[in-house]
Design a protein around this nucleic acid. Sequence first.
DNA 1: TTCGAATATGACAACGTTATCTCATCGAGC
DNA 2: GCTCGATGAGATAACGTTGTCATATTCGAA
Lengths: 334, 334
Amino acid sequence: MTRATIKDVSRVAGVSIKTVSRVLNKERYVSDDMRQKVEEAVARLNYHPSQAARTLAGKRSFQIGLIHDNPSPYYIFNMQAGVGQRCREADFRMIVQPCDINSPGLVDDIGALIDQAQLDGIIMTPPVTDVGTALAELFRRKIPVVRVQPGTDLTATSAVYIDNVQAADDMTAYLISLGHRRIGFVTGHGNYFASGQRLTGYRQALQRAGIGFDAALVFPGQFDFQSGTAAAEALLALDQPPTAIFASSDDMAAGVLAAAHRLGVAVPDQLSVAGFDDTDLAQVVWPSLTTIHQPIRDLGYAAADLLLEFGETIERRQLPHKLVVRGSTAAPKS
Amino acid sequence: MTRATIKDVSRVAGVSIKTVSRVLNKERYVSDDMRQKVEEAVARLNYHPSQAARTLAGKRSFQIGLIHDNPSPYYIFNMQAGVGQRCREADFRMIVQPCDINSPGLVDDIGALIDQAQLDGIIMTPPVTDVGTALAELFRRKIPVVRVQPGTDLTATSAVYIDNVQAADDMTAYLISLGHRRIGFVTGHGNYFASGQRLTGYRQALQRAGIGFDAALVFPGQFDFQSGTAAAEALLALDQPPTAIFASSDDMAAGVLAAAHRLGVAVPDQLSVAGFDDTDLAQVVWPSLTTIHQPIRDLGYAAADLLLEFGETIERRQLPHKLVVRGSTAAPKS
DNA sequence: TTCGAATATGACAACGTTATCTCATCGAGC
DNA sequence: GCTCGATGAGATAACGTTGTCATATTCGAA
């Protein structure tokens, strides 16, 4: 017993091959009578169309690519979950392609992927979003692209994103509202545009509250645990150490926590710590992290949605973030 | 300018289409002369074969599926990285398919995936590995299968795994060697065969050391953070609380840590805590976790390797685990 | 020298769909 | 009653590869 083909279906249903194809592709001009006969035959034979044949014969492949160069399991997992969910709803398949933005073969690899799989569209996550040569290649091929949280050429492609400036502003304002005046800030990796945006939000909230910006309180991080540890060690060693540290990722916030524990600094009594992302990590460290919830899964879903609904038409969608207060922040003890 | 086809390549190289195909597929009986001409043409035209056409015309699709129902981002990320790596080396593509082992449509979904994509093979991770109906469907289709850490029908398919019994034994023996006599154990989720194996290893080490097994020290967990917290609360409330707790996942160990912090129990001075898996988490909590390193990425790589190298031939491969000592364990203070 | 096997290449059908074109039917408007 | 557009259905040609078979050449052994 070999796989059922469209021919088998047409024979069982007693209609032409093309009519079966019409039903499968939900085309117009099919009578209810025919549609029903075909659907019955499809169910009876447990028929599933060959993706390869569809791709070869048609103009679409029902496949989209997700291109990323992101070392965070949590980010990738949720992004895939969101994109995958939307793909399943549309009977599309998601092809995941990790890459290395520093590799000279990056552009060729992306081109090869598109050629081989005949992708109908591409979703990119930072920092791949901002690699000019890769973007140019995609434009050359005129393939629909949706970028997640792009930093450059904002209007060049469809995009989904959150308001990083506002989010960092929210968190900083929250810390200020608790009574903190000296708030340390750990920036993210320079490759990510969001890093700068979060710093901007931090400064914006300080300024609004009439608190002067102190460059000594800003530590350059890389989004990872080590950076957080290093930042905490540096910031807590200052003559006038901060009473709160806002790290622009949860990993870095965890690093701050670890350093504080090691130095015997009580959190949140002696030091408040805030993160950004609301990864699983935030609820698994102690004390659990006050952080900004970034709806990564929803971003993925929205990205796929834009791709499937609008194709080449450029569309933008901003998703809401949320301040999540947990155990790592409190009012400073005077 | 449209995509280059094999026809274009054959024209540029001045050979037949079939010869180009031979070179591309590394078939025998091609002269160096021909091979070189074809390779030059391929490079010049930046030609990439259409996967769809290859699948349709040939017997192989150059695609394998990775089927999982696992909520751990870390596990999935690394498994994908390993499988993906091996696929890239062989110019195969990996299709990732999350699923729900409790869904009645599970078998149909897997069947549909195989039909539509004409997969050349399937890799499954626990707990999907042990769903009898799904396995039966795969056998029916005679598709090569590799299972990661299967629990049932061990010899029915190729498999890669670690020795969970020995690993848990190692950890327990290590804790005993530190001087611990009352060692709590938190089991994993019942759906996973590894859960039982780890408990066996724990008991085995106790017995060898002449320490009686005390059922009160074993707490049933689910592999997640909450379980760990609940376990620690229950175990530490015993009349004779343990001096060490061995949780069979890092997430649960993190839960134990959090509960200990909350209860004011110092780790490792008053309580040693050990995990299992060595996920990123292990180095990000405080104190960092003593745990068993499970080479998830390597397991993925090996699984794909077995699939690509041996196909239907059943082959098994055991990978080494490793005890990693970090800050969460110490000798008990008498 | 001759023959068979191994090597090297090509012609052409086949894979399972969708696209395009053709044809038939049915109502509505003149 | 006739024409025209909308609707419904099918025949047939792609799509870009690989599989199969045919054919030519080369090499080694009898």
